[in-house]
Design a protein around this nucleic acid. Sequence first.
DNA 1: ATTGCAGCGTGACGGCCATCACAGCTAGGG
DNA 2: CCCTAGCTGTGATGGCCGTCACGCTGCAAT
Lengths: 238, 238
Amino acid sequence: MRAPYGLEIIESCLSCPHREDRLFCNLPPPAVQKLAAITSAAAYPKGATLFVEGQSPRGVFILCSGKVKLSTSSADGRSLILRISEPGEVLGLPATVTGKPYELTADVIEPTQANFISRTDFLLFLREHGEAALRVAQQLGETYHSAISEMRTIGLSHSAAEKLARFLLDLSANHDEGKGEVKLTLTLTHEEIAQMIGASRETVTRLFADFKKKQLLQVRGSTLIIKSKAGLESVLSS
Amino acid sequence: MRAPYGLEIIESCLSCPHREDRLFCNLPPPAVQKLAAITSAAAYPKGATLFVEGQSPRGVFILCSGKVKLSTSSADGRSLILRISEPGEVLGLPATVTGKPYELTADVIEPTQANFISRTDFLLFLREHGEAALRVAQQLGETYHSAISEMRTIGLSHSAAEKLARFLLDLSANHDEGKGEVKLTLTLTHEEIAQMIGASRETVTRLFADFKKKQLLQVRGSTLIIKSKAGLESVLSS
DNA sequence: ATTGCAGCGTGACGGCCATCACAGCTAGGG
DNA sequence: CCCTAGCTGTGATGGCCGTCACGCTGCAAT
């Protein structure tokens, strides 16, 4: 198979480096075989769109490499970014199992390889392998969980400073354990961060300036260093 | 069995009036039998709490009658109501299947009968009945779907008027089909509505006054009549 | 009746932040 | 090397709405 965007295509799921953290990792071998048979790999360039909010579900995408932005938008053009998906995640799962339209839009923001499974194949597979259906349920539960926690940061904390602090702390929780100072690379623009926390671009810029002045963090290029986790936490309920 | 709060207890799921819309409706009879065997019924008075955010999951509650408020709250006492559960719904599903703590708090706001299934029994049941696991996945997908749409109303529309209009339109969509004028009974206080849309109590009061003055709706006791659905819709992107 | 309490209505004030406007900055591309 | 385009920084302005404060109603209990 060609690699249209200069991306190596990993043909088999068995050799996928994310097999361990993946959804279907400890299924019996025959099930994995079956899964591989109905999976088709594809590569997408930056800017491509996997699916759009409102489309009827074609199937699920298993993210092998790259990054994908999941967002929803309103009629007047405003958009809200829910999360950035990392390799190993499965996209389009809720819509595919329920049959309702995709509730989100999935845009590729870093060149991505994704494996696709069509809805009919996928449902058939789940019906035959109850164990896998349970795994899917668990995955959905976790997705729901993170949606709720996103909702809390947006809905409960009014001050934008609080929302940004929460956002950064969540990031640092994923990326590193806390030893007082956390370094992480942030590829998002201020605009995108604004859309994630429900604020305006300018406010995000000003808040970053504030936080820098208060010695809470430090920015060098696309690397962000959180100097004082405790300091950020003190912003939360002030 | 006693009926401690003056509520008739329906012992068997088979005779439950919501059997049709319920999660496990068209399972094969033996599965339903098994389900009935691990289910225990209980009644709860207004003000009771089924589970609290942060608790580790004990199991699922199947709502047979009454109403239950699902909310989440932050450290400083603010709380956000996600939805009001109606009979036929299953509560605590995400936490129970993932094993993570309950992400919400479930408070009874109208005397309720709920059937309980313990986590271990429930998981065992799902493992034995793959078909049921798939149904659970679908249910979770729909719950996720509604969480996303809730998120959009809270996150994308800042004007409180817009949020309230969205909220009312959602309500009217559930309760009736649109023929220009919709009547519905609303048992929520202004305070609770405020917590659902992320606004303050006073703002909700003022907005209702506004809407009444604009002839969009009308309130008599706990009955709310939406006079002009189109009018409310025009508030959405103004 | 009286007390109490929960919910509703309404005014005043002030802060936060969205919006507009514009200016420097980096990066990539011809 | 400019030139365009996207990103970032910053000021000015104004409105929305959260908060405080208080009075009102209606309902329940004693």
